[in-house]
Computed example of a mutant assay.
Amino acid sequence: MARSFTWLRYFLLCCVILLVFTFLLALITFAEISTGIWALIKHQKIEELPLMDAKKAFSLATTDNKKIWDRMQSRLGCCGLHGKTDYADSQGPPWSCFKVASTEDSQDPDTIYKVGCLFSAISHTRSVLLNVFLTALGSVLLQICFLIAAACYLKAVRKKKEKRKQEILETARSAKDSDADNQTLKSKTLRSF
């Protein structure tokens, strides 16, 4: 009898752990679905800055935020806000507008980036948001597979519990029947003496 209680405690512990796992996995899946939907909506709604804000931001490219603009232009492979013509008022495009970093004396016009940074930044942002969406989608599909596997495992454990319960009942019945048979046999044996 003590053995069946040990098995029952083990079974209940497994069920509790499995239920906690399933709940946490469902919570994480919900968070990832929300993140994926948010990224997809933002990907579709991303728009350009209003022209005045974009021009204001670019005006800082030649003064206060020159290092930031140089880093952005060299990393995104772009020049100016809409192209190299944005630098027409200044002393020409900076080194970061060229495909190969070179000295000011040898800046070849053929190696200058033709695309403006506004387009490149929007394209890069859309790409990142699309990657976030696809990662969330892939993760959700994987977690759904884990949830299905956990549900199948829980079902198998319940079936095994029922089968074990039936075995215990059959063993108890057969033991009771064999005890009754033994009692009958003993009483017959005693009467014969």
Rank of each mutant, 00 (worst) to 15 (best):
V128N: 01
R191D: 10
S74P: 02
I28T: 11
R75G: 02
A101E: 15
G116I: 05
C97Y: 01
Y153F: 15
L134E: 04
I17P: 00
V115K: 05
S120D: 03
T111W: 04
S174D: 13
I148C: 12
N65K: 14
S96K: 11
L40W: 01
C79T: 11
C97S: 06
K67D: 06
V140K: 05
G116V: 08
H82T: 15
L13R: 10
F30V: 12
D86Y: 14
L169D: 12
S123L: 09
F193K: 09
N65R: 11
D64F: 11
S96I: 07
Y113H: 09
D53H: 04
E32G: 03
I112R: 01
R173W: 09
D181A: 15
A39Q: 00
S192R: 15
D177W: 01
E162T: 14
S106R: 06
F11M: 10
S120E: 15
A175T: 14
K67M: 06
G77S: 11
L137G: 05
I37Y: 02
I28N: 04
F5Y: 12
A175P: 00
K55Q: 14
R126T: 01
G77D: 03
Y87Q: 05
L81N: 07
S139I: 13
S106W: 02
A156E: 10
F133R: 05
K165Q: 15
R158C: 08
I112T: 01
A2V: 08
R158V: 04
L12R: 03
V140T: 10
L19V: 09
T171S: 11
L8K: 07
R9D: 03
G92H: 01
K160Q: 15
W7H: 11
V16E: 02
A151Q: 06
S192Y: 12
I68N: 08
L76Y: 06
F193C: 04
K155E: 05
I144G: 04
A180D: 07
R126F: 00
F98S: 05
V100P: 00
L25R: 03
K188W: 12
D181R: 05
F58K: 04
F23I: 11
T6I: 13
K56N: 09
V140I: 07
S90F: 01
I33A: 08
D110T: 10
I112N: 00
F193Q: 09
W7Q: 14
W95M: 13
S123G: 08
T22I: 03
A39W: 00
D177P: 00
Q91H: 13
S106L: 13
L25M: 12
Q44P: 07
Q183G: 08
P109H: 03
